[in-house]
Design a protein around this nucleic acid. Structure first.
Length: 512
DNA sequence: TTCCGACAGTGGGGTCGCAAT
DNA sequence: ATTGCGACCCCACTATCGGAA
């Protein structure tokens, strides 16, 4: 199959907003693909490269290359050349990769170049990623879409399932079962604004402490242990403590879900930055492990002794977990039977925060483990802080925000009467707010910078954030974590905005 | 007919590690 | 040695479609 066909379909998919039409277009293309094209066509149309990482980014791709007049590239040829490109490493490799990319781009038409660029940078923006591709695949093969989706979650990969399905038909789905050693996409949580709201929605539930670490899925098969992240990357070699911990547990074949986190000598959690730095260290793991030892804290069991627990209610999965994992290696929790237990749940949240954790996750007791989905049966509750800050500049948006000033630079007042930038945000604004702020900020503009505008520091905005963290990038030495706009405060003057001093006083645990 | 779950899009900061300077 | 870049951790929120209620 020619690449140009994919580029055309991708453009058509992007042009329609109806999800049903997107699915129909993808299904038609999947049906036309030859068996050998399948492992390439499916991920390409889901907006992803089968190679994952290439070591090529914007810097290399932003160099313009004259396009070819007529299409000639086939999808298989493109895939083969990208695979080769990904293997190039060593001195001079960056230049060599850039050369190979340029060569490939030179053989592509303008339309194909756009499509390849989107694929490599992960920004296809056609309004259809894995989930829509799964529907298209189901339509193309006549397999029920829930079954296809489940197989993808269990395989942890769309293209594996696609190839099996298009080669052997719907019966191939039976092959995808939960297997020790093969990671499953983890279940995710929604957000609730309070414990009251969460318990109101879920009824009988477990309230569990939420640790600010790295999500891990631990597989043990006898003496062999493998550890996977949320995106199913294998990080076993970076966490020798976890392998030892898993080998000490009573079972010999299991899959557990949990969090890995670093504690200090007093048992309080260390900052997320410290845990993440440790888990990210790959070169000298032994030294990193001595400096920042980490511990696993489990909260779910997906498989024990070859028994698939995914469809069991949480109560039963947790009973299996408790049988296998002793107390300190399990997340603390309180079980409540409904709104009448609210005081106990509130008390548990308060204690959890005092112990230095992020918040709680409220989980329905009868819900199954919905792999890969942001199911409504897990609700996280975290305290939210707010500040009144002043807008210092704004950047032009991309995609559907093209032409709108989108990303705001936020400043707090300093002792000398000026403003110190604390970070940026593009979150929380409605389309109406985007339109309004674009006009308002243009009025306040003092300089057009190309990427946006700098403005007179007069517009006050209320910002919600999850906490402070240390920063080497911003002048106050701190930055806001997950800042988002709550509302504009036109009733406030910039002199009434919050100061760096009060911000630091509110977070004594963070020393810039 | 209205409501709501699922999805895609729009990007944020930090850290590590490799390659280039 | 330092800097730039890519990959991968953490993540919030809004708009929209289309099936459920």
């Amino acid at each position: 199959m020619l690449l140009t066909r994919l580029a055309d379909v991708s453009r058509e998919v992007a042009a329609t907003s109806a999800r049903s039409r997107k699915i129909a277009l993808l299904a038609e293309l999947f049906r036309d693909a030859e068996p050998d094209d399948v492992p390439v066509v499916i991920p390409y149309l889901a907006g992803r490269l089968p190679q994952g990482r290439l070591g090529v980014g914007w810097k290399v791709l932003s160099r313009p290359v004259a396009p070819a007049d007529a299409p000639s590239l086939t999808v298989r040829e493109v895939d083969a050349r990208l695979t080769e490109l990904g293997k190039v490493s060593g001195t001079g490799s960056q230049a060599e990769r850039a050369r190979l990319v340029g060569e490939l781009m030179g053989e592509a038409t303008a339309e194909e170049q756009r499509f390849l660029l989107g694929l490599i940078t992960g920004e296809v923006r056609q309004g259809a990623l894995d989930a829509v591709a799964v529907e298209g695949l189901a339509e193309a093969t006549g397999a029920p879409s829930p079954d296809v989706r489940r197989a993808v979650m269990l395989a942890g990969s769309l293209q594996t399932v696609a190839q099996a399905l298009l080669t052997d038909g719907p019966t191939a789905l039976d092959r995808f079962r939960l297997t020790v050693g093969r990671p499953v996409l983890p279940m995710l949580a929604h957000t609730a604004s309070s414990v009251t709201e969460a318990i109101g929605k879920l009824g009988a539930c477990a309230v569990e402490e939420k640790l600010d670490g790295i999500r891990v899925q631990v597989h043990r098969d006898g003496d062999s242990v493998r550890i996977y992240t949320r995106t199913l990357d294998d990080i076993t070699d970076r966490l020798p403590e976890l392998t030892s911990a898993a080998l000490e547990l009573r079972g010999s074949r299991f899959v557990l879900d949990g969090e890995v986190i670093a504690f200090d000598d007093t048992g309080r959690p260390r900052s997320f930055q410290e845990t993440a730095g440790r888990v990210g260290s790959r070169v000298d793991v032994a030294t990193a492990a001595r400096a920042v030892p980490v511990s696993p804290v489990f909260f779910d069991a997906l498989s024990v002794d070859d028994r698939d627990l995914l469809d069991l209610p949480f109560t039963e999965r947790h009973a299996e977990l408790a049988r296998l994992v002793p107390e300190p290696m399990r997340v603390r929790r309180a079980v409540v039977s409904g709104p009448e237990d609210l005081p106990a749940a509130e008390e548990f949240l308060k204690e959890t925060l005092l112990r230095g954790h992020e918040g709680v996750v409220v989980k329905s007791l009868d819900a199954p483990y919905s792999a890969g989905r942001r199911g409504a049966s897990w609700l996280k509750v975290k305290p939210v802080h707010t500040l009144d800050l002043v807008i210092l500049a704004a950047e032009w948006g991309h995609g559907r925000r093209t032409g709108k000033l989108s990303n705001l630079h936020l400043g707090a007042r300093t002792a000398d009467g000026g403003f110190a930038m604390l970070g940026k945000t593009f979150k929380g604004m409605t389309d109406a707010m985007l339109t309004w702020q674009t006009e308002r900020l243009k009025e306040l503009a003092v300089e057009d910078t190309g990427w946006g505008v700098t403005v007179r520091p007069e517009l006050v905005v209320e910002i919600a954030y999850d906490g402070l963290q240390r920063s080497t990038r911003y002048p106050a030495g701190v930055t806001l974590r997950f800042a988002r706009v709550v509302r504009y405060r036109e009733d406030k003057r910039p002199e009434e905005a919050d100061t760096v001093e009060t911000l630091l006083a509110a977070h004594p645990e963070v020393r810039p």
